[in-house]
Structures are given as structure tokens and as C-alpha cells.
């Protein structure tokens, strides 16, 4: 599965777990305005992704300091794609 597939699946689980129906989850969708995700939902998404992808790009100190704005599904995909392609040990 691609990062987009994993992210889509995670968001679906979050919405289902919280008793909400899953709208169309496309890369251009806004996480808050379109999908209705709050910070708890995002935190859960990240935990689910850590389980499926084996990484949590938000836990690394550098990532927290220069955390890019996460507004859309595509923003999330970019963060995970970049984290997956650069092993964390190479961070200076």
C-alpha cells in the first residue's frame, strides 16, 4: 500500500471509531474543514500510521520544530513519504 492508501485507511478508522461516516478522502481534502478532524483525531491517525508504517515523523525533535503546516491529506502524504525515504538516523 502507498502512504496515501495507508493514510486514507487510518482516517477511515478514526471516523468509524468516533461514530462518523467517512466522506470522500482525496489528497486535496482539508483535514479540519472537509473531513472534520480535530487534534485528537489527528493524534489517533498518527498512532495508527505508526503501527502500519512503523514510523512517527512527528516524534522526532526536528520534525516538531520545523513542523510544516498540515492542512490537507496531501500534506500528510508528503510528510510520511519524505520520512519513509530518509532513515531517521541520518538526521544531524
Amino acid at each position: 500500500m502507498t502512504p496515501l492508501d495507508e493514510i486514507t485507511a487510518a482516517i477511515r478508522t478514526v471516523l468509524a471509531d468516533t461514530g462518523r461516516s467517512a466522506p470522500d478522502i482525496a489528497p486535496g481534502r482539508l483535514l479540519t474543514a472537509d473531513l472534520g478532524l480535530d487534534s485528537l483525531d489527528l493524534a489517533q491517525t498518527i498512532v495508527l500510521l505508526e503501527r502500519s508504517l512503523g514510523i512517527d515523523p512527528f516524534r522526532q525533535a526536528a520534525a516538531v520544530e520545523n513542523r510544516p503546516t498540515i492542512r490537507t491529506v496531501a500534506d500528510l502524504v508528503a510528510i510520511y513519504t519524505s520520512a519513509l525515504s530518509s532513515p531517521p538516523s541520518q538526521t544531524p
Binding site: 487534534s39 485528537l40 493524534a43 489517533q44 498518527i46 498512532v47 512527528f58 520534525a63
Partner: peptide, 12 residues
């Protein structure tokens, strides 16, 4: 509690 960069912790 599970650590979370977004909310500090999360209930698991």
C-alpha cells in the same frame, strides 16, 4: 497512556 506529539498523550 500513549505518547503523542499532538496531544501529549492519548488514551489507549
Amino acid at each position: 497512556g500513549l505518547p503523542s506529539a499532538i496531544t501529549g498523550e492519548l488514551v489507549a
